[in-house]
Amino acid sequence: HNLTITQGKLFFHYNPKLCLSEIHKMEEVSGTKGRQERNDIALKTNGDQASCENELLKFSYIRTSFDKILLRWEPYWPPDFRDLLGFMLFYKEAPYQNVTEFDGQDACGSNSWTVVDIDPPLRSNDPKSQNHPGWLMRGLKPWTQYAIFVKTLVTFSDERRTYGAKSDIIYVQTDATNPSVPLDPISVSNSSSQIILKWKPPSDPNGNITHYLVFWERQAEDSELFELDYCLKGLKLPSRTWSPPFESEDSQKHNQSEYEDSAGECCSCPKTDSQILKELEESSFRKTFEDYLHNVVFVPRKTSSGTGAEDPRPSRKRRSLGDVGNVTVAVPTVAAFPNTSSTSVPTSPEEHRPFEKVVNKESLVISGLRHFTGYRIELQACNQDTPEERCSVAAYVSARTMPEAKADDIVGPVTHEIFENNVVHLMWQEPKEPNGLIVLYEVSYRRYGDEELHLCVSRKHFALERGCRLRGLSPGNYSVRIRATSLAGNGSWTEPTYFYVTDYLDVPSNIA
């Protein structure tokens, strides 16, 4: 807008934040220059609390790290170098490059900038070799853009010569660093050979998330399962459950009422301010606690030095998902009996873990797994792929695949051998790939016309006998059925096997 004052003059007093240069501009645009008398524009009460600059400061050096910015700028000295009290560095987070010096300023003089007072450097006698002032900004957020400017702080001049310097606002972004852990990993099994893994992005990506790394490792069953005799009275049979499938998407929606109208769909109840505040506090606490764990609990591995020492970490090797089922080394339970199943799973520490690289999504279907087997899954978020990966501390989750139908069934015939004193040795093959492992066998036998009897055969007993022995049988026709019990439950009964026990007292003698 054009402003013209045809008559009258300007009068400025007691404006401590208004620089004289701005008042002189007002004289020019209003056409009143030359009308004012000496005392109409006070030299001592206008701009006496402001830094009124008329020179431009330029930054000469900028260096960044993930949490620091090192700045240096060209030296500046007023005509009387004693008038320079120091520099004021202003900075704040700036997602967009549209910041002005006066953003967030209120009537009390406060604003949204963080201000650092910096002492002037030592003055050199040689004007050509003056030290460049600077400042190291610490405690910054990774991968965050900051708006920065600097200006001088000078003393009051009796001659009211307006001098000083100020830089333009520059924008500097800190470097990326390792992201925080992925949030809320959930693993479920939808079949006997697959596990579905879902997660949420890290709360602090500290860069642009480029991919996720998912490692999985087959877990050995508890050692007590191999040692305890679950045929003993009072000892509860062990059981394991597989990871249940995901709930429906509708039930997972946030901010939804727990109660549904019987007449149909209901609208979600909005969260109160107290609920939102509580969630923010919980989120802040979780982030602080995660940072504490990362800094205190997890110790970084030592990389190899120039002395030739090897990095103890196993090298990563990509495998196809079809090879995942046989990740671990199978060892027989008892070496003397080769027909026992290889369900003991000690994992070799030198073995390469299978892994998958996930790009542009937060889910993965891990296939080719062994049925009813526990897996430990390790999830890392990465925001750099080359020249070397920059990934987060791992988040861990466990899951067990679903049982395989008929995996616990005894394959092959049940054979028998009759000894003296009416002892019958029953023999059968253990299931080759049971659900988890076989903890015991149930032997059901009966003599024709009598009630059915049951015998429990422990895992250890089966390994020693290759089956079991029935003792003290009365003469007669017998039928026997056997079924295995694994961590997933009972298998199917075998087809009945028949044998006849004679009275050993009636056996004919070869003595003449």
Results as ranks from 00 to 15, higher is better:
residue 465 E to F: 10
residue 278 K to N: 11
residue 482 I to R: 00
residue 443 V to H: 00
residue 401 T to S: 06
residue 421 N to R: 13
residue 319 R to Y: 03
residue 310 E to N: 10
residue 478 Y to E: 00
residue 241 T to Q: 13
residue 402 M to I: 13
residue 337 F to A: 02
residue 254 H to T: 13
residue 512 A to V: 05
residue 326 N to S: 14
residue 387 P to R: 06
residue 338 P to Y: 12
residue 300 P to C: 08
residue 504 Y to G: 09
residue 321 L to A: 12
residue 432 K to W: 10
residue 411 V to C: 11
residue 458 S to A: 07
residue 239 S to I: 05
residue 342 S to T: 15
residue 502 T to S: 08
residue 256 Q to T: 08
residue 217 E to H: 13
residue 246 F to D: 09
residue 460 K to D: 04
residue 406 K to Y: 06
residue 258 E to F: 14
residue 220 A to I: 10
residue 366 I to P: 00
residue 369 L to H: 01
residue 449 G to Q: 13
residue 319 R to N: 10
residue 384 Q to T: 09
residue 262 S to N: 06
residue 420 E to N: 10
residue 435 N to A: 02
residue 292 Y to T: 07
residue 274 S to C: 15
residue 367 S to E: 06
residue 434 P to H: 05
residue 367 S to F: 09
residue 415 T to E: 01
residue 504 Y to D: 12
residue 381 A to W: 01
residue 298 F to R: 13
residue 485 T to N: 12
residue 430 E to T: 09
residue 435 N to C: 03
residue 402 M to A: 12
residue 353 R to I: 15
residue 283 S to Y: 14
residue 298 F to S: 07
residue 449 G to D: 11
residue 382 C to R: 00
residue 349 P to Q: 03
residue 266 C to V: 15
residue 246 F to K: 11
residue 257 S to D: 06
residue 250 D to K: 10
residue 286 R to K: 15
residue 458 S to H: 03
residue 438 I to F: 02
residue 267 C to P: 07
residue 468 C to D: 01
residue 503 D to Q: 15
residue 286 R to E: 14
residue 265 E to A: 14
residue 429 Q to R: 04
residue 421 N to M: 14
residue 220 A to E: 15
residue 432 K to P: 13
residue 438 I to A: 04
residue 272 T to F: 05
residue 300 P to H: 12
residue 343 T to I: 07
residue 203 S to Q: 03
residue 443 V to G: 01
residue 353 R to T: 04
residue 290 E to W: 04
residue 432 K to E: 13
residue 243 S to D: 08
residue 415 T to L: 13
residue 286 R to D: 14
residue 335 A to I: 14
residue 397 V to M: 12
residue 419 F to C: 13
residue 487 L to Q: 11
residue 448 Y to K: 14
residue 456 C to N: 01
residue 467 G to F: 04
residue 375 Y to E: 00
residue 435 N to E: 01
residue 297 V to H: 15
residue 495 E to M: 02
residue 360 N to I: 11
residue 212 Y to A: 10
residue 225 L to A: 10
residue 221 E to V: 07
residue 444 S to Y: 14
residue 327 V to M: 11
residue 453 L to G: 07
residue 393 V to I: 14
residue 478 Y to D: 00
residue 503 D to F: 03
residue 212 Y to T: 14
residue 355 F to Q: 07
residue 448 Y to D: 11
residue 288 T to G: 11
residue 215 F to M: 08
residue 257 S to H: 04
residue 481 R to V: 09
residue 283 S to G: 10
residue 355 F to Y: 09
residue 354 P to N: 06
residue 388 E to P: 08
residue 404 E to D: 10
residue 498 Y to P: 06
residue 256 Q to S: 06
residue 278 K to S: 15
residue 235 L to V: 09
residue 262 S to R: 13
residue 373 T to C: 02
residue 249 E to M: 04
residue 369 L to I: 02
residue 424 V to Y: 05
residue 434 P to I: 05
residue 344 S to V: 10
residue 290 E to R: 08
residue 328 T to F: 09
residue 383 N to L: 08
residue 208 N to V: 07
residue 373 T to I: 13
residue 363 S to Y: 09
residue 377 I to Q: 02
residue 355 F to D: 02
residue 324 V to L: 08
residue 473 L to H: 01
residue 388 E to T: 08
residue 318 R to K: 12
residue 296 V to N: 11
residue 275 Q to C: 08
residue 447 R to T: 08
residue 341 S to R: 07
residue 325 G to I: 12
residue 256 Q to F: 07
residue 494 T to E: 00
residue 408 D to W: 00
residue 362 E to N: 07
residue 460 K to Q: 09
residue 487 L to E: 03
residue 467 G to E: 02
residue 349 P to L: 07
residue 299 V to I: 08
residue 404 E to A: 03
residue 372 F to Q: 04
residue 273 D to L: 08
residue 482 I to Y: 01
residue 450 D to T: 08
residue 379 L to M: 07
residue 220 A to S: 12
residue 254 H to W: 10
residue 217 E to S: 08
residue 229 D to L: 07
residue 468 C to E: 01
residue 469 R to F: 15
residue 477 N to Y: 10
residue 324 V to G: 14
residue 378 E to V: 12
residue 435 N to G: 01
residue 254 H to K: 10
residue 219 Q to L: 13
residue 438 I to M: 03
residue 453 L to N: 13
residue 455 L to P: 01
residue 460 K to H: 08
residue 207 G to K: 01
residue 251 S to Y: 07
residue 415 T to V: 15
residue 494 T to S: 11
residue 268 S to M: 09
residue 250 D to S: 11
residue 426 L to F: 04
residue 419 F to V: 06
residue 221 E to H: 13
residue 437 L to W: 02
residue 412 G to I: 03
residue 231 C to K: 03
residue 350 E to G: 14
residue 505 L to Y: 14
residue 297 V to T: 10
residue 270 P to V: 09
residue 245 P to N: 03
residue 497 T to A: 08
residue 494 T to V: 02
residue 504 Y to I: 11
residue 445 Y to P: 01
residue 450 D to Y: 14
residue 206 N to T: 03
residue 396 Y to V: 01
residue 367 S to V: 11
residue 412 G to R: 12
residue 257 S to V: 06
residue 500 Y to Q: 04
residue 497 T to N: 09
residue 216 W to Y: 12
residue 345 V to T: 06
residue 274 S to N: 09
residue 248 S to T: 05
residue 380 Q to I: 15
residue 454 H to G: 15
residue 248 S to I: 12
residue 502 T to R: 10
residue 354 P to D: 15
residue 384 Q to E: 15
residue 473 L to S: 01
residue 283 S to A: 09
residue 365 V to T: 05
residue 207 G to I: 02
residue 434 P to G: 06
residue 284 S to H: 06
residue 332 P to H: 14
residue 237 L to A: 06
residue 467 G to L: 03
residue 304 S to P: 11
residue 337 F to H: 07
residue 506 D to W: 11
residue 481 R to S: 05
residue 425 H to A: 14
residue 390 R to T: 11
residue 335 A to S: 07
residue 240 R to T: 13
residue 293 L to P: 03
residue 420 E to L: 06
residue 436 G to F: 10
residue 362 E to I: 12
residue 477 N to P: 09
residue 354 P to I: 14
residue 233 K to I: 05
residue 428 W to Y: 01
residue 320 S to G: 12
residue 372 F to K: 02
residue 484 A to V: 07
residue 265 E to N: 11
residue 372 F to N: 09
residue 341 S to W: 14
residue 334 V to M: 13
residue 449 G to I: 06
residue 332 P to D: 09
residue 461 H to A: 10
residue 220 A to R: 07
residue 309 A to I: 05
residue 363 S to F: 04
residue 267 C to E: 13
residue 429 Q to L: 10
residue 220 A to P: 13
residue 395 A to Y: 06
residue 500 Y to N: 14
residue 504 Y to E: 15
residue 225 L to M: 10
residue 395 A to S: 12
residue 427 M to T: 15
residue 259 Y to F: 05
residue 283 S to M: 15
residue 456 C to E: 04
residue 483 R to Q: 06
residue 441 Y to M: 01
residue 341 S to P: 08
residue 244 P to V: 10
residue 478 Y to L: 00
residue 347 T to Q: 07
residue 418 I to V: 09
residue 232 L to F: 13
residue 365 V to I: 15
residue 471 R to N: 10
residue 322 G to R: 07
residue 346 P to T: 14
residue 275 Q to N: 06
residue 454 H to Y: 15
residue 233 K to N: 14
residue 240 R to K: 15
